[in-house]
Simulated scan of single mutants.
Amino acid sequence: MLLDRSNNQNITTKYNLYVTPHEILRPYISAYNILFPDKNMLSEKYTLIPDASGTLSFVYDGKSIKGELWGASIHPNMIGSEANNYYFLLLIELKPCGLFQFTGIDQKELSDLRIDLGEVDKYLNTSLCNIIEQSIDVNDLVDKLNTTLLSHMSNVYRTNTIINMIRKINENNGLLHVKELSLLEHYSERHLNRLFSQYIGMNVKLFLKIMRINSVIKELQKSQNSFTFIAQQAGFYDQSHFIKDFKAICGVSPMLYLKNMSDFSN
């Protein structure tokens, strides 16, 4: 069985795998992150960078499986020392609006919260915990996750509008103002904020800021360009403003982030 390492020769002591979900699920799920950690796999300071997305988290401590719902992230979340203590972790990493798609709950009530998934959706929690317990290997786990989550999806037509807005924002690396988005979508700014609050868990301005900072992080990871150049490309023409926004989202300055990049997940 998957959770029994002694019977699974494919699982090494340290195991961290990202698997793409079924094609229909991809607008809502970024990846299945499957981990078999040990005491030293992650830095104690390992931190999740906010990306305005939620997560369905499942951990196995050697005795039982526990499911949690993590609301859309708007603050850094340090998980390293906690994660290293488990035998197995499954993180269903959602995209913005994904948590609404599978729960139908107003997301403004869940932002940055970590709560027992069973309190929100007992059926989904039981189904996914059973899948983890009964799966033979990783491939079997992924197949069963896809089947269960496809059957559990809410009406996709309810989220099509917001998904299309998110796509436009991502295509512009967050470089849109609320007023511009309002004109593009033919919604009032007030109504846009209402939609984003309900489906994502935050207002439009904060969502745009998080997307801009995430686009900067991607450039910092792959580019040799200077902070100043990358910040200007992201629409930050005042370096002090850029550093302030970066620290507000990531919890550290850009320089400290680069120095300790392995301590962060994005």
Rank of each mutant, 00 (worst) to 15 (best):
Leu2Met: 07
Asp4Asn: 12
Asp4Ala: 15
Arg5Asn: 06
Arg5Thr: 07
Ser6His: 13
Asn8Phe: 08
Asn8Ser: 12
Asn10Lys: 11
Thr13Ser: 13
Tyr15Pro: 12
Tyr15Gln: 14
Tyr18Arg: 15
Tyr18Cys: 06
His22Phe: 00
Ile24Val: 12
Leu25Val: 03
Leu25Lys: 00
Arg26Lys: 12
Pro27Ser: 09
Tyr28Arg: 05
Phe36Ser: 03
Pro37Ser: 07
Asp38Arg: 05
Asp38Val: 02
Lys39Asn: 13
Lys39Cys: 10
Leu42Cys: 05
Ser43Thr: 13
Lys45Arg: 14
Lys45His: 12
Lys45Val: 02
Ile49Ala: 07
Asp51Lys: 08
Ala52His: 06
Gly54Ala: 09
Ser57Met: 11
Ser57Asn: 06
Phe58Trp: 01
Tyr60Asp: 03
Lys63Gly: 06
Glu68Gln: 12
Leu69Ser: 03
Ser73Asn: 08
Ile74Glu: 02
His75Ile: 15
Pro76Ala: 06
Asn77Leu: 15
Met78Ile: 10
Ile79Asn: 00
Ile79Val: 13
Ala83Val: 06
Leu90Met: 08
Lys95Asp: 00
Cys97Asn: 08
Phe100Ile: 06
Phe100Met: 04
Phe100Cys: 04
Gln101His: 09
Phe102Ala: 04
Thr103Gln: 04
Ile105Cys: 10
Lys108Tyr: 02
Glu109Thr: 09
Leu113Glu: 04
Asp116Gly: 07
Lys122Trp: 11
Leu124His: 03
Asn125Glu: 09
Cys129Trp: 06
Glu133Pro: 00
Ser135Ile: 05
Val138Gln: 12
Asn139Trp: 01
Asp140Arg: 05
Asp140Tyr: 03
Leu141Ala: 08
Leu149Asp: 01
Leu150Lys: 10
Leu150Arg: 15
Ser151Ile: 14
His152Gln: 09
Met153Arg: 10
Ser154Phe: 13
Asn155Val: 13
Val156Leu: 13
Arg158Pro: 01
Arg158Asp: 15
Arg158Met: 14
Thr159Met: 07
Thr161Pro: 04
Met165Ile: 11
Met165Ala: 05
Ile166Phe: 02
Ile166Ser: 00
Lys168Asn: 11
Asn170Glu: 13
Glu171Ser: 11
Asn172His: 10
Asn172Lys: 15
Leu175Ala: 04
Val178Gln: 10
Lys179Leu: 13
Glu180Val: 11
Glu180Lys: 12
Glu180Gln: 14
Leu183Val: 14
Leu183Thr: 15
Glu185Tyr: 05
His186Cys: 07
Tyr187Arg: 05
Ser188His: 03
Arg190Asn: 12
Arg190Ala: 14
Leu192Arg: 00
Asn193Gln: 06
Asn193Glu: 00
Gly201Ile: 03
Gly201Met: 02
Lys205Thr: 08
Leu206Ala: 03
Leu206Glu: 01
Met211Phe: 05
Met211Trp: 02
Ile213Gly: 01
Ile217Gln: 01
Leu220Val: 08
Leu220Ser: 08
Gln221Lys: 14
Ser223Thr: 08
Ser223Met: 04
Gln224Gly: 11
Thr228Leu: 11
Thr228Tyr: 11
Ile230Val: 08
Gly235Cys: 12
Tyr237Ala: 02
Asp238Asn: 15
Ile243Tyr: 01
Phe246Ser: 01
Lys247Glu: 13
Ile249Trp: 03
Ile249Pro: 00
Ser253Pro: 05
Lys259Asp: 03
Ser262Asn: 09
Phe264Ala: 03
Phe264Val: 01
Asn266Ser: 11
Asn266Ala: 08
